[in-house]
Nucleic acid binder design. Structure first.
Length: 566
RNA sequence: GUCUUGGUAGCUCAGUUGGAUAGAGCGUUAGCCUCCGAAGCUAAAGGUCAUGAGUUCGAAUCUCAUCCAAGACACCA
């Protein structure tokens, strides 16, 4: 990475000068008109050395310039008021870096130490169809999974179905009340029953208790309810699978809460042996407060008064057996921020059990989906819109946006719909609620998925018209738009590392957008296929080819494919 | 009530962990198709970074207070 190399130069210079800096960090210049990279250490040193930042900066720069082949790397190193050290890279170094990227399968990105990571996302509830609220977990989770894999980690993804809680008891009750026979249950039935019974339970205490007891019996292995559970899971599962397939979201493990049940008994024994389980108000709980806590945390509910277990119990049992067996360095959960407290308490129990000594637990929270009025997004009927209808709506508005779209293949259309939705979602990084605007999810101009795809296809069509034969760039950079493209290309490695470290696909999404902006400006200004200078043309084609390789592979990390035509 | 997030352009959002002149898209205004794909490009206008204090050479970013919004707070997930 370029930044590492500059940092090494700096460290050496600082050492020679006997300046002590705890960390040396170079960042991409936020004055791109002045330089490519900047260093602000002179300000920190100024305090210790009681000299002006400019004075210190100047000394450092002089030292740097003593290095033998320094001009091979930098066109210019200078200190500018108020005291930043500005680095402008030499064309030679930029091109060398790009050549190395082009030769490498993964663009010469620096790979971190390999870890084993379990990622839990999607988390659909089998009692109801997927709606817009499930979109983020699926899309963001899928992208994080792909990024982690790309960086060489061992990743195990788990959908972790919500399949054994109170909601199942409610649905089973509804099916029985309506006297629907097991064979005749349809998806439509399920879609109606759950909201109805769950709504009624909020009003009717007795009914709620009835459903809770069905849930409890099911968990205990009731022969009466087991077939219902199986059937619901089958019907619902097929539909969930179908939608994830459309979104190109897939999991290594298709397991749920119910799969954790066999492990509750041994887990209970372990908790008991450590004296962590306490009877409280008839229920069994684990207290997780610490002396140092400013606030009081509620205990983790382990077992209800009626004997039934809850989602914290299954989360814990899942870690206890199914996840620990992989010896993960990290378990990542993608769930909305309303569940923050839940995860905090579960994680604390894990800490008490000693699991967190060599395993990290992360809850990546995101906001809920609101409508343009800032209130929870609802259809006219009062439900959250189903993902199916979202796909349909996006597709229709895309077809309407341009008449040539009518000739597109169904496959390409689906790719575009995916690109629109995913890019709209992935470009923002929000823990707070986000506004769901169907117009935004239908837009094809500006900072959108189609913009990136358009750029890719346009480059592809330039490359198709003319081949290049060189296998690396020469030492030249031909104009400012050209330089901007190259500068952006060499930022790939640090960008991707940063995105993975922070588990933020938005960083990658924004990088791709910026790369496309630079490329668009570049080929709009320079009509490559009409060039007479063969050398220049070959170099530019080479550059565009690399750009497209990067676009394609990075889009894949966002879960976005490329259509044949658009 | 306690705690957690958050408040950046008319709207939707970035802002790399304290740096130089706060950035995009949409929308608005003005240009660009005899030239590789106009789903594009070039410009312009638009800001008291909720408010007030503090820390710092330097604050949208850190601290405190206030206002506003969303959410969580033991037998739902």
């Amino acid at each position: 990475m370029i930044t590492n190399k500059i940092e090494t130069f700096l460290k050496e210079a600082l050492q020679d000068l006997e300046y002590e800096a705890d960390s040396v960090e170079v960042i991409v210049s936020n004055r791109s008109d002045i330089s490519d990279y900047q260093y602000d250490g002179s300000f920190k040193l100024a305090k210790v050395l009681h000299k002006s930042p400019i004075e210190i900066g100047t000394t450092i720069v002089e030292k740097l310039k003593e290095k033998e082949d320094i001009e091979k790397y930098f066109q210019k190193i200078e200190v500018l008021p108020p005291g930043f050290i500005n680095f402008t890279l030499s064309n030679e170094w930029i091109n060398e870096t790009i050549n190395e990227m082009a030769k490498s399968e993964k663009f010469n990105i620096s790979l971190p130490k390999k870890e084993t990571i379990v990622i839990d996302y999607g988390g659909p509830n089998i009692a109801k169809p997927l709606h817009v609220g499930h979109l983020r977990s699926a899309i963001v989770g899928e992208s994080i999974k792909r990024m982690l894999k790309y960086m060489g980690h061992d990743v195990i993804s788990d959908v972790h179905l919500g399949d054994y809680g109170l909601q199942i008891g409610e649905v089973i009750y509804g099916i029985q009340e309506k006297r629907i026979s097991l064979e005749d249950i349809t998806l439509e039935d399920l879609e109606k029953i759950y909201p109805e019974i769950s709504g009624r339970c909020k009003e009717d205490e007795e009914l709620k208790e009835k459903c809770a007891s069905i849930t409890k019996d099911l968990q205990d292995g009731s022969e009466e309810y087991q077939p219902y559970f199986e059937r619901i899971k089958e019907i619902s599962g097929q539909d969930i699978l179908r939608i994830y397939k459309y979104l190109d979201v897939s999991f290594d493990l298709w397991q749920g809460e119910s799969d954790a049940y066999p492990y509750i008994e041994p887990l209970t024994k372990e908790l008991e042996s450590m004296n962590l389980l306490t009877e409280s108000e008839g229920a069994k709980v684990v207290f997780v407060n610490k002396e140092s806590d400013a606030k009081e945390l509620p205990p983790m509910m382990y077992q209800k008064k009626n004997g039934a277990y809850l989602y914290g119990t299954t989360d814990l049992a899942t870690i206890y057996e199914r996840r620990q067996k992989y010896h993960p360095d990290d378990i990542i959960y993608l769930a909305d921020f309303r569940q923050s407290l839940h995860f905090e308490t579960v994680f604390r129990v894990c800490e008490k059990l000693g699991y967190t000594k060599d395993m990290k637990l992360e809850h990546l929270a995101f906001g809920t989906v609101n409508g343009t009025d800032g209130k929870p997004f609802k259809t006219r009927a009062g439900n959250s819109p189903k993902l199916d209808s979202l796909f349909k709506e996006v597709k229709e508005s895309f077809l309407k946006s341009n008449e040539k779209n009518e000739n597109m293949t169904e496959q390409d259309l689906d790719i575009i719909v995916n690109a629109i939705i995913k890019f709209a979602d992935l470009q923002n990084n929000r823990e707070k609620d986000y506004i769901f605007d169907i117009n935004k999810f239908s837009s094809v101009v500006g900072k959108t998925g189609p913009y990136i795809l358009y750029t890719y296809l346009r480059i592809a069509s330039i490359l198709k018209k003319e081949q290049y034969t060189i296998d690396e760039l020469n030492k030249e950079i031909y104009d400012s738009t050209d330089r901007e493209v190259r500068r952006k290309l060499i930022e790939l490695s640090s960008t991707l590392n940063h995105a993975v470290e922070l588990r933020m696909p938005s960083i990658l999404a924004n990088y791709l957008y910026e790369l496309c902006v630079n490329i668009n400006a570049f080929y709009e200004k320079n009509h490559i296929n009409n060039l007479e200078d063969r050398n220049k043309k070959e170099n530019w084609l080479f550059l565009l080819d690399l750009g497209n390789r990067i676009l394609k592979e990075m889009l894949d990390l966002l879960g976005i494919k490329i259509p044949e035509r658009m």
